[in-house]
């Protein structure tokens, strides 16, 4: 318990530090958020134009598609907001030998890396995700219960760590290969598939994003449960399981990687 309290305190110190840094560059941060908002808007425009040409997308209405799309942005945005520093590990921290600094501090390296940065640009995704869910909800006939709301929140929480877990595993490759930024990128891009109803894909893609790189559990399955109320054990339960499995694997691979880490000679 004391240990966890200490971690929270460290996190707060890092966040305050980040916020101070950000206040120095207020303009930058606004531009970044607007940039992310615009990227999402252009995707929405795409959906809207498509739905002008068809009555529904293989049985999915525009509102349902928007709901799933919006839901997918929430865990993605939260992970992006808090744990973006992993990209830096893959792109340059290890290659330049800067990783040494984490090894000299009295905090677990993974915790330190995760806590260090706050990527405020991610608010663009997060705001958009929440807005889309809110806009599409009134048009959808969803029966709400306390249980459902709680499961929905739990799903978002665990889905976030599916993103984080996948990023930790792929970022760790850098400990052996010096850089892995584009490996993170390649795997991460699979989340694009998860923004749309999984039923539009063929079996190969469907199985891939359900069982191998399980991004489908960050959006489609939990959103499906919220939309229909069906099968919470699979739709939300698997989200929790996948999340725990990926995080455990991530922690394991990370610590194996640190053993293999050799600093850059300079």
């Amino acid at each position: 318990m004391k240990h966890i309290r200490r971690l929270f305190r460290i996190h707060r110190i890092f966040v305050v530090q980040e916020l101070k840094r950000m206040m120095e560059y207020k303009g930058d941060f606004i531009v970044g958020v607007i940039g992310f908002l615009m990227v999402q808007c252009s995707n929405l425009l795409f959906l809207w134009i498509i739905f002008n040409n068809i009555p529904n997308l293989l049985g999915w209405s525009l509102n349902e598609v928007v709901f799933i799309y919006g839901f997918s942005l929430i865990p993605k945005g939260i992970d992006h907001l808090f744990f973006d520093n992993l990209w830096a590990i893959g792109h340059f921290t290890v290659r330049k030998g800067d990783f040494d600094k984490y090894l000299t501090r009295p905090v677990n390296t993974l915790v330190h890396v995760l806590f260090e940065k706050l990527q405020i640009d991610a608010l663009g995704e997060l705001i958009m995700g929440i807005a889309l869910v809110c806009v599409s909800l009134p048009q959808l006939q969803i029966e709400w219960s306390v249980f459902k709301v709680l499961l929905g929140i739990a799903a978002v929480f665990f889905a976030t760590f599916i993103f984080t877990g996948i990023k930790i595993i792929t970022a760790s490759v850098a400990f052996w290969k010096k850089r892995s930024g584009n490996i993170i990128y390649m795997v991460y891009m699979f989340n694009d598939f998860a923004k749309y109803p999984v039923t539009i894909y063929n079996e190969v893609i469907k199985n891939l994003i359900t069982y191998i790189i399980p991004f489908a559990f960050t959006a489609y399955f939990p959103a499906l449960y919220l939309l229909t109320g069906e099968n919470p054990l699979y739709n939300v339960g698997m989200t929790v399981l996948m999340s725990l499995a990926l995080m455990s694997l991530g922690v394991f691979v990370w610590h194996r990687g640190i053993r293999a880490y050799e600093s850059a000679g300079s």
Binding site: N56, L57, N182, V187, M189, D192, I200
Partner: peptide
């Protein structure tokens, strides 16, 4: 590194392909 980057980027095409595939089936 470049190969991984291209592979990651080409995934977007497959997403578009499946969406359009579904669109043409629904139209």
């Amino acid at each position: 590194n470049w190969v991984f980057y291209i592979l990651g980027s080409v995934l977007g095409c497959f997403v578009s392909y499946f969406i359009w595939h579904a669109v043409f089936l629904s139209g």
